[in-house]
Nucleic acid binder design. Structure first.
Length: 457
RNA sequence: GUGAUUGUAGCUCAGCUGGUUAGAGCACCGGAUUGUGGUUCCGGGGGUCGUGGGUUCGAACCCCAUCUUUCACCCCA
């Protein structure tokens, strides 16, 4: 080969057919967001490192792509300091910008910076790529899209309920059967409190979060490794090893959390959400799942996760309430709740189940064969009329062999091909071929729109 | 970051214990068919075998390094 071309590790090109499928997902998600009054914002691909660093833990900091300063970025470097021990300080001197790692932290920055122009409660959605310097593997890329929808500046559990409605509506439109799992961080905190290990709350949530994946035994091992007493682990067993439906879980918790103020508050929140759901009756399963914890530690109240009932692929949507996200940027007491749809995983699920509608593949409704200058002019005239009526159509841009042009139309999945040659031009007719059946008929130019309506294109 | 794994034509892959001119299918181009695609037949172009080094009379094949692919862990969408 002449030149070796490639793209960076963990990134992808999207072909025309992949893009039409991706847009099918994005368009449907956006439509639903807008229907509930959420408005789009965008933030820059890069943020100041001071905005990003320290928000995702040490692990996260390592995964942020850093951007070299422009110009002579070495001019602040002292040669004596050039060794791996000083990597953090050196990084500070040569880089002050990084690519965004998620949409939530830039959103918090956005709120603080633009607070004077925002009407609270603020409902926004944001669909943009994010970047992580992770090692790529199955379902994990270095560049991927997040579709976030959040409402900030309102404590009401109505917002949690509305997000469940949105989840339910989107997956109904996409024709996917899903289960929405709900839990509450206050319940988890209450559990940690009642088993006497409040200070180990974070390791407990991290371990519980793995329950589905690694099973009870390994969760217990991990808890032990993190210094939980055997007594506490024993007390935790009934939470994990009994399968309960939502009602049973609520009963179980009201007994267990009797002595925990925080835990009972969380339970009340869960009850309120399920009361809303009594009226609304979602199509998806919505259940209280005590093993749901979510790794991200900025969540403080309700947490959500959505999994496909038909394909095992991890969570395809998740989120929760965070009471204090903007305080890291100096704006206190602003509570928010939001969820993020994993477009890449939803794509994989739809693809595996073959649930993309066929028309997402189609490029145009009608294709015109080009026979030469005179015929081409006629085609332009008819094509413009079709476009006015809402049909998409294209004319082959130059005279070429007929079979070549038909092949082109076939490869682009165009359902109808119109042939206007010397004969048709003379009689003011056109020949239209239905590419799926192979039938073709000759009709008057004026009958074309009627014909297309009849075949319900 | 730790441990495996992959790389041969645009794509998917064959290629024997190392042996001289590296193959197939699909795609592409031309023809059978100068107004008919998706099915048929014939022909054609396209590869310094990821890259660099080493062993050998001889390397796609063995050794080392490096990049890349995929996967598990960590973490996460």
């Amino acid at each position: 080969m002449a030149v070796q071309v490639s793209i960076p590790k963990g990134t992808r090109d999207f072909t025309t057919s992949e893009m039409s499928k991706r847009n099918y997902i994005f368009d449907n998600i956006k439509t639903v967001f807008k229907k509930y009054g959420y408005q789009a914002i965008e933030t820059p691909a890069m943020e100041n490192l001071s905005t990003l660093l320290g928000k995702y833990g040490d692990e996260g900091d390592r995964l942020i792509f850093k951007i070299l300063n422009s110009g002579n970025y070495l001019n602040k470097i002292d040669e004596d300091n050039l060794n791996p021990e000083h990597i953090a300080e050196i990084t500070n001197l040569i880089s002050e910008k990084g690519l965004r790692y998620d949409l939530t932290v830039p959103f918090a920055r956005f709120i603080v910076q633009n607070r004077s122009e925002i009407t609270f409660p603020f409902k926004r959605y944001q669909i943009q790529p994010v970047w992580r310097a992770d090692k790529p593997q199955k379902g994990r890329y270095r560049e991927f899209f997040q579709c976030d929808v959040d409402v900030i500046g309102s404590n009401s559990l109505f917002n949690e309920f509305e997000l469940i409605q949105i989840i339910d509506e989107i997956f109904e439109i996409l024709n996917l059967k899903v289960t929405v799992k709900i839990n509450n961080r206050k319940i988890l905190a209450g559990i940690a409190e009642t088993i006497g290990e409040s200070d180990k709350f974070i390791p407990i949530t991290v371990a519980i979060d793995k329950f589905e994946k690694i099973g009870l035994k390994k969760v217990n091992e991990e808890l032990q490794k993190n210094g939980l007493s055997q007594d506490a682990i024993n007390k935790l067993q009934p939470v994990l090893n009994v399968k309960r439906n939502t009602t049973e879980s609520i009963e179980f918790l009201s007994e267990m959390l009797k002595t925990s103020e925080t835990g009972l508050a969380g339970l009340e929140e869960i009850k309120t959400i399920f009361d809303y759901l009594e009226y609304f009756k979602p199509k998806s399963n919505v259940e209280l799942d005590l093993s749901l914890a979510r790794g991200l530690n900025y969540y403080t109240g309700a947490i959500f996760e959505v999994i496909s009932d038909e394909v095992e692929l991890g969570s395809i949507c998740g989120g929760g309430r965070y009471d204090d996200l903007t305080s890291i940027f100096g704006m206190k007491d602003i509570s928010g709740v939001g969820i993020s749809f994993g477009a890449d995983r939803i794509y994989d699920v739809l693809n595996q189940l073959n649930k993309f509608p066929n028309e997402t593949e189609k490029s145009s409704d009608v294709f015109f064969i080009n026979f030469g200058k005179a015929e081409e002019l006629k085609c332009i005239e008819i094509a413009n009329e079709l476009r006015k009526s809402g049909y998409s159509c294209e004319i082959y841009p130059q005279k070429a062999k007929i079979d070549r042009q038909f092949k082109y139309a076939n490869n682009k999945n165009i359902p109808f091909v119109i042939v206007i040659g010397a004969q048709e031009l003379e009689n003011n007719t056109l020949t239209i071929k239905d590419m799926s059946s192979g039938d073709q008929i000759s009709i008057k130019n004026s009958e074309l729109i009627d014909y297309l309506e009849k075949v319900q294109l």
